[in-house]
């Protein structure tokens, strides 16, 4: 049909992908006040787990939707034990944490490149397949894997919302975001809650990795290239807030798709995301839904 309707569909796909990655990033920030620069490379890891399963071992990609979250969650939990907990116990400051995350990001990215090489690879799937009725009824293109991204993201994030709102674990995570010391004093096993937060964050971004692998393609800087956009989503929505990350993801995705029509240059999509992020930081650093508390 027309460009605008197509842009809406594209925004939904992109926003759904961003949201899966952004929610995990913001949860870790909320609970640990840690800006995890390795989050993007964890997404890449998820994408390559999909590649190993689908291309190297010739198994159905569907398996990757289980395996990638498990592997990346395990990696994330591993970093908590090996890297983050010891660093917190040593009383590390902000710059130390930032640089540790950068070091971890570099290590992971080049380890991936060491194992899988630096080229672009594709899953053995038909990612030109489109949803017929969308094409027939509206004359719009919606790829099969785009639709899958939207649906999986929706289902998973509703699950996450329920977890956060209704379960003891989710409530503990929110309690830690509010006030770690008080959570500890109230009897919350903070170490255990932190481990589960990493697991959840890793699982979500691992899943995002497989979807990115299917809808974009697989290469070692896939996640790093998405990371600043994901930061933009998190910050626009309000860092530390899961609902904020969700909202921010769609705000960024829609702004990118529509402003790119205005600029008339596809290559500036990423830049548009950054610019919006910077503007939000200057005007309202706590974002749309974030609390002042989280940014102080």
């Amino acid at each position: 049909m027309d460009e605008l309707a197509q842009a809406v569909l594209n925004s939904l796909t992109a926003g759904s992908l961003y949201a899966l990655a952004a929610v995990g990033l913001t949860l870790v920030y909320g609970v640990l006040r840690l800006t995890n620069f390795a989050h993007g490379d964890m997404l890449t890891l998820g994408a390559y787990v999909g590649y190993a399963i689908n291309v190297q071992w010739n198994l159905p990609l569907a398996l990757a939707f289980v395996a990638a979250p498990v592997v990346v969650a395990a990696f994330a939990v591993g970093t908590e034990y090996v890297v983050w907990r010891p660093l917190r116990r040593a009383g590390a400051g902000l710059l130390q944490k930032l640089l540790m995350a950068i070091g971890l990001a570099l290590f992971l990215r080049y380890a991936i490149q060491f194992v899988w090489g630096g080229d672009r690879d594709f899953y053995e799937i038909d990612n030109t397949a489109t949803i017929a009725w969308v094409r027939d009824a509206f004359d719009l293109t919606l790829g099969f894997y785009d639709l899958l991204t939207i649906v999986i993201s929706l289902v998973v994030l509703v699950g996450v919302a329920l977890l956060l709102a209704r379960t003891l674990l989710g409530t503990s995570m929110r309690a830690l975001s509010d006030d770690v010391d008080l959570a500890e004093s109230s009897g919350v096993d903070t170490d255990r809650t932190v481990v589960w937060t990493w697991a959840l964050s890793g699982a979500l971004v691992g899943l995002a990795g497989v979807l990115a692998g299917a809808t974009i393609n697989v290469y070692p800087t896939l996640g790093w290239d998405l990371l600043l956009t994901i930061f933009a989503c998190v910050i626009v929505g309000g860092i530390g807030s899961a609902y904020g990350a969700l909202l921010g993801s769609y705000v960024i995705a829609f702004s990118q798709e529509f402003l790119v029509l205005v600029v008339d240059d596809q290559r500036y999509k990423t830049t548009i995301g950054f610019v919006i992020m910077v503007l939000v930081l200057l005007v309202r650093p706590q974002g749309i839904l974030g609390s002042k508390r989280a940014v102080n």
């Binding site: 409530t171 929110r174 006030d179 008080l182 109230s186």
Partner: peptide
């Protein structure tokens, strides 16, 4: 223990505050 300042979880509902209090005896 009820600390001197900041002794509730501000973004949690009253019910969730109590739930956290009971977390050692679910």
């Amino acid at each position: 223990y009820v600390p001197q300042r900041q002794n509730v979880f501000p973004t949690l509902s009253v019910r969730d505050n109590l739930m956290i209090g009971g977390i050692t005896r679910t």
